[in-house]
């Protein structure tokens, strides 16, 4: 309790600028306690609480069947599309439509179309993801697979960005002994409840795509630098890693930056991709960019024969 009180004065000012502050005192207490537990509270709080990383606060309230983020959804700005519009604008418009559908209570199915011709193998997506989700060593929600094809002089490198494929029929979720991971019906994203996960790693063995990782509690720096102790905005929960506390010891995976999507932002990897190779949107929306690309371009999905029905399409 004393911890909360010492932190409160510095925090309140910041928090009050956020539009989604909980009204009742109790939930605000808990919200503050989350930040209060951070070692760097005084130093880093302003950065963490900047507008960009606003957590959907209600989501932090653990309900019996947790639905993160149980949002005050924030729509992306309405953009007038024309011939000149960028891919990003198009995807933001798609996202706006998808979120509007969600607000009406309709289901969406988020997916990706990755243009293998455009990927340069720069790995900005991997870096952006690490920065966004503050993932430790040996956890990387997306990776870029690399293969050399042919022999000199006819040789080229193929790069393949691979996040979690958010399977339509995921093999990783039914195996969980505590039901800590599931595919969300409303938007098709496979999530993990860190507070339920017991860290048995069955899901790591069950994923045919290597999209799940175990947080072994390792860190990049020793002594820990402040940037490793930033709260991760994942699932809008703002957890700071510490020994013995989730997500340390849990399975972790890509969630298409759920916390960003519902705040009207594209996943970090999509937004950062320098070649605009990664396209994100609602697969159930026939007018979305991803639907259009999948319909027009030849494509493959990984290990389709396993019946996993992945939501990530690779455009050839």
């Amino acid at each position: 309790m004393s911890n909360q009180q010492t932190v409160e004065p510095t925090q309140v000012v910041e928090v009050e600028t956020i539009d989604s502050v909980p009204e009742d005192l109790e939930s605000r207490r808990r919200f503050l306690a989350k930040f209060g537990s951070a070692v760097f509270a005084g130093l880093m709080a302003p950065a963490v609480l900047s507008k960009e990383f606003t957590p959907p606060v209600e989501a932090a309230e653990a309900s019996p069947s947790r639905r993160f983020p149980d949002v005050p959804v924030r729509l992306p700005p309405a953009i007038e599309l024309d011939e000149e519009s960028s891919v990003i604008d198009r995807m933001l418009a798609d996202l706006r439509r998808a979120l509007e559908k969600r607000q009406r209570g309709e289901k969406v199915r988020f997916g990706m179309a990755v243009d293998l011709q455009k990927c340069t193998g720069c790995r900005a997506c991997t870096v952006a993801c690490k920065a966004e989700n503050v993932t430790p060593p040996e956890v990387s929600y997306n990776v870029v697979l690399e293969q050399e094809v042919g022999t000199y002089p006819n040789v080229r490198r193929v790069f393949m960005y691979k996040p979690c494929l958010q399977c339509g029929n995921p093999p990783c979720t039914p195996v969980c002994p505590v039901g800590a991971t599931w595919k969300r019906e409303e938007d098709g994203i496979v999530v993990i409840d860190y507070d339920k996960c017991i860290g048995c790693r069955y899901c790591l063995t069950a994923c045919p795509y290597g999209s799940r990782f175990i947080d072994l509690g390792k860190s990049y720096t020793d002594p820990l630098q402040p940037y490793e102790q930033i709260a991760s905005p994942e699932y809008g929960e703002n957890r700071v890693r510490a020994t013995g506390q989730s997500p340390v010891g849990n399975a972790r995976k890509c969630h298409f930056c759920l916390h960003r999507i519902y705040q009207g932002m594209l996943p970090a990897c999509v937004e950062t991709c320098i070649g605009r190779a990664i396209h994100f949107g609602d697969l159930d929306d026939p007018e979305s960019l991803v639907s259009e690309l999948i319909a027009k371009r030849p494509h493959i999905r990984l290990k389709e024969e396993l019946g996993t029905d992945p939501s990530v399409y690779y455009l050839l």
């Binding site: 039914p174 195996v175 002994p177 039901g179 339920k196 017991i198 069955y202 989730s246 849990n250």
Partner: peptide
């Protein structure tokens, strides 16, 4: 072998009969 040993008992609380 569990990442969260202290939660071992939750297998009786959090159900996933298909696992």
């Amino acid at each position: 072998d569990l990442g969260h040993m202290e939660r071992f008992w939750t297998v009786f609380k959090n159900r996933n009969w298909w696992s």
